Computed example of a mutant assay.
Amino acid sequence: MDLYLGLDTSCYTTSVCAVTADGRIVGDERIILSVSAGGRGLSQSNMVYQHTRNMPLLMERLAPRLAGHTIRAIAVTSQPRRREDSYMPAFLAGLGCARSLAAVLAVPLYTISHQENHLLAVLRSRNTIPDRPFYGLHLSGGTTDLVRAVPDADGLAITRVGGTSDISAGQFIDRVGVALGLPFPAGVHLETLARQCTEHVKGSHVFCRDGELSFSGPESQAQRSIAQGDVDPARCSAWTLATVWRGLEILLDQCGASAMQQLAAAGGVMSNGFLRQKLTAYCHRHDVELLLAEDGFSADNASGAAFWAAWQERKKSV
């Protein structure tokens, strides 16, 4: 059977994935990068070191599922966004491995951005890439972007419509979570804690101007309360998620929900059940088709890249 390989080395996770020609997952392996207790991130040099150490382990785990099959193409994330000024050394670890594999196997190598990889991970579940522009909401540890995506020969040409002017929704969640004593990245732990809150919590207002949100004010508010010891952790967690949603709702209202037909919501923050529920209801009210990644594939993973490799090779045979 023909298989297609994807690699992604982001700020949070080392990922490899193999899919069939129709996008079905054959193997998916990931290792979350290690952050010291109380830490809120890693230096780029530490990311490169961990990715370099992790990639052989992931390939060894994936190898048994590749046995007896033929890898026809490889795709890898090479930068955060598809822009000339978008660069992070962390992606060199995956790119170097992918180039080596493609050279030895004598197969095509495709490069896409990490942001495209996230949106393609959503599209993979439908085994198709739209032939018309669509909107995307990319919510991850370092990114809160509302974008307009246009499929082209290189992947997805993405234009940013709105987002955050300071910290991302993911950074807001992580910083509050770490202040509460949760491990980094804190998203899944904060969501678990928020479920323990039995009262309805309304989030704080989020300032937005010209499609640019600011979560720094609510984050400072939370940090002051936590430092004073004046918080219930479960309620603070629920408040944090409710505040994120208030901001996202304002962003969508200001930046064209009325013009949207499709919205692909991607990124690790979109793994959050509360936010998925709120966004689903919002899109239903506004008659927008919401596209979500399959369970487990909103967070950093390489399935979008693998799907792009399969899609490119499929186009050659048409």
Score class of each variant (00 low, 15 high):
144 T>W: 03
281 A>H: 15
8 D>E: 06
103 A>L: 13
82 R>D: 09
105 L>C: 11
258 S>K: 06
100 S>Y: 11
47 M>P: 00
131 D>P: 10
130 P>Q: 04
213 L>K: 03
92 L>V: 10
34 S>E: 11
141 G>L: 00
40 R>E: 12
164 T>L: 09
258 S>T: 11
173 I>C: 06
124 R>W: 09
23 G>S: 13
124 R>I: 11
31 I>Q: 13
12 Y>W: 01
74 I>A: 02
66 L>C: 10
297 F>S: 11
224 R>Y: 11
268 G>N: 04
97 C>A: 15
161 V>T: 14
2 D>E: 02
205 H>Y: 14
172 F>T: 07
179 A>E: 01
59 M>V: 07
99 R>A: 13
59 M>G: 07
86 S>L: 03
105 L>M: 15
113 S>R: 07
232 D>Q: 12
30 R>C: 14
173 I>W: 04
278 K>C: 10
130 P>L: 03
189 H>D: 05
140 S>R: 09
155 G>C: 03
214 S>W: 05
194 A>P: 07
143 T>L: 06
234 A>Y: 03
162 G>W: 00
170 G>D: 01
230 D>K: 14
108 P>I: 03
7 L>A: 02
106 A>R: 13
76 V>F: 05
24 R>F: 04
316 K>G: 07
41 G>F: 05
247 G>T: 05
180 L>N: 09
7 L>C: 05
237 S>H: 12
282 Y>F: 13
220 S>P: 07
251 L>F: 11
111 T>H: 09
31 I>L: 05
201 V>M: 10
94 G>F: 06
188 V>D: 15
47 M>C: 13
279 L>E: 00
202 K>R: 09
295 D>I: 12
155 G>Y: 04
287 D>Y: 11
198 T>D: 15
65 R>M: 07
297 F>M: 12
16 V>H: 04
59 M>H: 10
94 G>S: 08
173 I>A: 02
268 G>C: 09
45 S>T: 14
143 T>M: 08
1 M>P: 15
93 A>I: 02
93 A>L: 04
111 T>P: 03
310 A>H: 04
71 I>C: 11
227 A>I: 08
57 L>C: 10
103 A>V: 15
62 L>R: 13
178 V>H: 04
316 K>P: 09
271 S>L: 04
234 A>M: 14
228 Q>E: 12
315 K>F: 06
179 A>H: 01
262 Q>H: 07
43 S>M: 12
218 P>Q: 10
222 A>S: 08
291 L>E: 01
210 D>K: 14
264 A>C: 08
111 T>C: 10
153 A>H: 13
92 L>N: 09
152 D>Q: 10
173 I>K: 01
136 G>M: 00
109 L>M: 14
218 P>A: 03
278 K>W: 01
247 G>W: 00
141 G>M: 07
